[in-house]
Nucleic acid binder design. Structure first.
Length: 444
DNA sequence: AGAGCGTTGTA
DNA sequence: ACAACGCTC
């Protein structure tokens, strides 16, 4: 048996399904997919992260007597060249549309063996008592109680006695050759997943209380590592579950499961409202541009967006604040926001991003009620009272009294500060959104 | 099949 | 209160 081990979003050795299930002669490879790269900005941060992770993986594979061939090509072309020599490809599953279409085409060239490796559960399982997929988080979460109860989930180790297929693929394409520039990444991304995990574990007890506060450093910082599989979901679970205080963070891990599960069962939700609502969005291009650039005149929204643009990161609650502002206050289609996040977020995960935007725009299956609209000023007052986060990003406001950040036109009232005026009044746009969603619902 | 409930809120 | 609905058992 001759197998290609196609690494994609599983850039690790331990608990890796394709390495564990491999047998005989193997050819590990990674493809920098031209179809994907050609659509990216030359300054895309994720590719820098993936690039360094892939080089690390190559070293790790060499330590266990294997290696990694690195291609810059279209997957179809790579496998066309290799098809005579191999019996099958092993890879992990992705449920987003691009991945599904890609894999279907590859399968016509060489048989593909897929493993559910990026998530704890296989979405095909875990149906409700009516044998239908869950649409509400809590019952879904309760159905995973058996997992929660098990303090350890069995992980996988690389298979023994693998032989490396004839290997003369030492050439590694440079980032520049792929049309990309090396980017400076947030410092924590240079650290190994185990190190971040250990640091998080030491402050786990504070997580539940502090996780909502933008300026506190309470989050796991592991979303990017999880996204590209430098750490598996099982490893994450196993490391944290033993602790008393783990419920809150495991719950978030299960949200990740839920959103992957929803995308699997409701693939159309990637493109359309999951609930068949016909909302009359305003979709004003100028407003959208201001939102993207962090020029809305609402300090917490602008700080969140500019921080995203600068770093590729955004705090969970901030994502809710800016997405509520876009879809409700500005009445712009969630798909515009989803696409922008897809371009910018270092931890962009299609399933989580899509479901979260559907949540914010009240179009998803278990989303926020349309009349429960975030007031960005109350959010910043509650979660960034001293304006620490806002000032860290909007440095031109660093001398201001933080109270000004938490009321409409507060900053603008200071005549010495040059800050954009508000696009809309919060009160007016809130009522406008409620009306638009009411209308959408009453349509046949 | 009818009861009970629903991630993150606001005025 | 908001609006009152879909999901789940």
């Amino acid at each position: 048996m001759k197998q290609i081990l196609w690494f994609r979003r599983d850039l690790r050795i331990e608990d890796n399904a394709i390495l564990a299930h491999a047998q005989g002669e193997v050819f590990p490879l990674f493809i920098f997919d031209q179809n994907i790269l050609e659509k990216l900005d030359a300054k895309d941060k994720r590719v820098t992260f993936i690039y360094q992770s892939v080089l690390n993986l190559k070293k790790e594979l060499q330590k266990i007597g294997l290696n990694l061939a690195i291609f810059y090509d279209k997957p179809e072309a790579v496998f066309q060249r290799l098809k005579e020599k191999f019996d099958e490809i092993l890879c992990s599953i992705d449920h987003d549309n691009y991945a599904k279409v890609r894999d279907k085409n590859i399968e016509k060239i060489i048989p593909l063996k897929r493993f559910n490796d990026a998530f704890l559960i296989d979405p095909q399982e875990h149906l409700n008592k009516s044998h239908l997929p869950y649409k509400v988080f809590t019952p879904f979460y309760n159905s995973l109680f058996y997992l929660w109860e098990s303090h350890k989930i069995k992980t996988l180790s690389p298979a023994n006695n693998l032989q490396l297929h004839d290997f003369n693929y030492e050439h590694v394409p440079s980032l520049e050759a792929m049309g990309l520039k090396k980017q400076i990444l947030p410092e924590f991304l240079e650290q190994k997943a185990e190190v971040l995990l250990e640091k998080f574990t030491s402050k786990l007890t504070a997580y539940q209380k502090e996780r909502d506060f933008f300026s506190l450093d309470a989050s796991t910082k592991l979303s990017v590592h999880l996204r590209f599989g430098l750490l598996s979901a099982k490893q994450f679970f196993n490391a944290l579950r033993p602790y008393q205080a783990s419920e809150a963070v495991i719950r978030q891990l299960f949200f990740r499961e839920f959103y992957n599960y929803l995308l699997y069962h409701f693939p159309h939700s990637q493109f359309e409202n999951q609930k068949p609502l016909k909302i009359k969005f305003l979709n004003n291009q100028e407003d959208f541009k201001k939102w993207c650039q962090g020029e809305t005149g609402v300090p917490i929204v602008d700080a969140g967006m500019r921080h995203l643009n600068q770093t590729g990161l955004m705090h969970n609650r901030l994502r809710m604040v800016v997405s509520s502002y876009l879809t409700k206050n500005l009445l712009i289609d969630w798909r515009w926001g989803e696409a922008y996040f897809a371009k910018k977020l270092l931890d962009y995960e299609a399933s989580s991003n899509i479901a979260s935007w559907q949540w914010a725009s009240s179009t998803g299956s278990d989303s926020v009620p349309y009349f429960r609209i975030f007031n960005p000023y109350l959010q910043s007052e509650k979660f960034d009272k001293e304006g620490i986060f806002i000032k860290s990003v909007l440095t031109e406001l660093s001398q201001l009294d933080p109270k000004l950040f938490h009321k409409e036109n507060g900053v603008q009232s200071n005549l010495f500060i040059n800050y954009p005026s508000q696009i809309v009044s919060i009160k007016m746009s809130r009522l406008r959104a409620i009306e638009a969603f009411k209308q959408a619902k009453s349509k046949p």
